[in-house]
Amino acid sequence: MNIQQYQYCFFGVVKREFLRFLQQRTRLLSALIRPLLWLVVFAAGFRAALGVSIMEPYGTYITYQQYITPGLCCMIVLFNGMQSSLSMVYDREMGSMKLLLMSPFPRPFLLMCKLIATAILSLIQVYIFLIIAQFVDVETPLLGYITAVPAIFLIAFFLGALGLLLSNLIKQLENFAGVMNFVIFPMFFLSSALYPLWKMKEASLWLYWLCDYNPFSYCVELLRFALYQQLNLEAFMVVFISTIFVSILAMFSFAPKRENRR
């Protein structure tokens, strides 16, 4: 196989993911409605109750809407990653996964193509959300939109790989509801998406530790800083290492069913 053939394969897999995304118009709608409800309804209600003092990377006092925006962006990426996991389970049940696994290209490359396609879709959805968020008084520095691209891409890659891994653990489509309860909600709520961790520490130390060990918290912080043209090195390292670790596990989980040795 030469580089051009790898290109055809890459664009073929990405195009299919896009076509499928376009077929599911409600997917885009629900991907945007969910965080917008949090931003417009939840954040407005809690604005008065939850004051956020000056903290990095913000140079001054910020509104609660401003604070939760990076968390909501990560929520979009998280849901998209899980949606792609759902579509993998669906593909497996419908049989079309066999086509992908029977391709003569290396399996890690094929899975990588899928992850990149998922990441691009996440990126598009996050930017649509960020544009709409401007109308709800969420101000992001103009350059922040550019510096956030690699951060969103890395986060999307991590969460997509996690979805890929989960898709191999979920044996039936019906079990997907469990992912909502045991993965999405704990990951989101036990993070710095909705409240700063120091506030959590004041409320409960063990909850703080749970949030602190949750890699999703680092996704949120990585994006929060990236939107202000800063690099949170600790967050970057945690997300980067988690991405590599989860990607390797996901690749291994797609190895053919092996019975015994020769």
């Binding site: 053939q5 055809y8 073929g12 076509l19 499928r20 086509l99 003569p104």
Partner: peptide, 19 residues
């Protein structure tokens, strides 16, 4: 893939073989 066209299904498979 039921929601894709005949052509799209064929081209997807072709891409998986680097064509």
């Amino acid at each position: 893939d039921l929601d894709l066209s005949v052509k799209q299904n064929l081209l997807y498979h072709a891409s998986l073989h680097g064509i």
